[in-house]
Design a protein around this nucleic acid. Structure first.
Length: 159
DNA sequence: GCCAACGTTGGC
DNA sequence: GCCAACGTTGGC
């Protein structure tokens, strides 16, 4: 089975890579995705062990700040059933949950981070969805070549 | 904090 | 099934 690669965005004030590292085992469930295309990637395409870039959006600088691995099979996002949560979805039922997620585990931090500006000027990365105007998709597929080039920019060994 | 671009909802 | 209205995202 081929390993695949992804990019997941998070707003720094919501959940940063430091928050991830502080979690037990550097692992968290990627809650709150409420976009069908992004959900479908987690539900239908991700496999345990896939590589994931952690991208800080609404941040300064905008950058890929590290990497994670997919760490679980897909399962229902618990926050959709929690009326206290801002991700609560009254239309979702436990019998037929609308929102699925996976666990992700921290693997490496990029220091310094690989900024969006740097990505934009690097040959081979020009097709990344991240660079497309108006691209709001918070989970995006990344090619193996993009995965590798960005690790070169980060001067880090791919994990 | 603004607001353009986008995705979703719901009336028809 | 269309599309206006609405809510959200994310770069600036």
């Amino acid at each position: 089975m081929n390993r695949r690669f992804w990019l997941m965005k998070s707003e720094t004030d919501e959940f940063s890579i430091d928050d991830l590292i502080r979690r037990k085992n550097g692992t968290t469930y990627w809650e709150g995705i409420r976009n069908y295309q992004a959900r479908n990637f987690m539900r239908d395409e991700m496999k345990v062990g896939d590589g994931v870039f952690f991208y800080h959006s609404r941040a300064n600088p905008l950058a890929i700040v590290g990497t994670m691995n997919v760490a679980s099979e897909p399962y229902p996002d618990p926050s959709q059933f929690n009326p206290e949560s801002k991700y609560f979805d009254a239309k979702s039922t436990k019998e037929n949950p609308r929102w699925m997620l996976v666990d992700v585990r921290f693997t490496a931090r990029f220091d310094p981070p690989v900024t969006r500006d740097r990505i934009r000027e690097t040959p081979g990365l020009e097709d990344m969805m991240l660079l497309k105007k108006g691209s709001r998709l918070s989970i995006q597929p990344v090619t193996e070549q993009e995965w590798s080039i960005i690790h070169e920019l980060a001067e880090a060994e791919p994990k």
